[in-house]
Design a protein around this nucleic acid. Sequence first.
DNA 1: TCTGGAATCACCCCATATGGGGGATTACGG
DNA 2: CCGTAATCCCCCATATGGGGTGATTCCAGA
Lengths: 209, 209
Amino acid sequence: MASSTIRICIVEDDNIIRNGFALLINSTFGYRIVNTYGNCEDAIKNLFQDEPDVVLMDIELPGMSGIEGIEKIKRLRPKTDIIVVTVYDNPQLVFEALCAGAGGYLTKNMQPARLLEAIKDIREGGAPMSTQIARMVVSSFQKNRNSPLTPRETEVLELLAKGKSYSTIADDLFVDKETIRTHIKNIYWKLEVHSKAEAIEKALKDKLI
Amino acid sequence: MASSTIRICIVEDDNIIRNGFALLINSTFGYRIVNTYGNCEDAIKNLFQDEPDVVLMDIELPGMSGIEGIEKIKRLRPKTDIIVVTVYDNPQLVFEALCAGAGGYLTKNMQPARLLEAIKDIREGGAPMSTQIARMVVSSFQKNRNSPLTPRETEVLELLAKGKSYSTIADDLFVDKETIRTHIKNIYWKLEVHSKAEAIEKALKDKLI
DNA sequence: TCTGGAATCACCCCATATGGGGGATTACGG
DNA sequence: CCGTAATCCCCCATATGGGGTGATTCCAGA
């Protein structure tokens, strides 16, 4: 791909912000705003006329939410890179946006120049994120370091969470099925649960596995 | 916390690189190398003498691997921030490192100055990553957009993966247990599997859920 | 040296979950 | 009008889960 001008759409219901971003981007060489919208519906309608390389997407919008918008745009035109630009930084929303297909996530307290960097970054295969968002994302991988479970019990719980049966787990760990049953009983007791579903739910919630 | 000098340890078996990093960091105001090591064992032994704020950790090391090292350091002294600095960028290793407790991940093709930024970043609550690593991490959240499953089937599979039983799923979705059974039969047929465990395994592998 | 936790294995009972087979109806959209 | 999705129903054999109780080995910390 030649390093031609990057085509950008903005979906943002605040006029001031939308025009501010547009002005900044349009006045920079190599970047071009092809269209701006106050809602997802209109942006999606014109997706194949606009042919944006990058969409800057707000989350709270009139009508369709930004999350839904991301999903639809990625479904219709997967090569479109989407960067969320929002004031919201709660983990729930961040993960929903990333699952939906966002390739970057910036909070609006950034330096304006960061926006240009981010657009360049995502086009080059990166995933631009504000620092607190990056930390949130990385933290989501990390296990609870104060697990009440023994290493062996954790191992058993992991296999249980993969849907394996007692006997399959026993085979995987080269022990008897009865041993697994004992481990699971101990796990249930420690986690104060009484079934697989509860155990897995609690384990995921507390990041024990 | 006052913005005092940041105390840094390096664990890296290549002398040239280790000394290069040390020189760069020590010659920068506000940063101080308290010790450098060629292996994890020695670094861990001196952890409470060194009291590092940040550890720069290589992955491939003689003796204990960097991954194990990260785990041990975070267990012994959780407030230590660890940045992986390595040539390896395969997803397996990246996720293992992050799960073990790494707070950042840089590949060695970075600009040297990036190292200083990264150290500052992680101390300020960020999660410094090379661009390709960030993309890898973000991609890991995104679902397969070509799932053979219907939305309803996906929903059922998600609950199944949470360890729920047929009847619990039925209750959750306000339908009959038999409906769930039919969905699951169809899921098994589409995924070409014959049990819960296989279905969940395949679903996770193909990012269907 | 003693104690306790971790990990292992065993046997009991019994309800229900599971997987495979068959067939059926409604409802929506191209 | 046809196909697909979603819903529901039946039968059946077996696997599995959950609860109870008890025991052995081994290792590390008090």
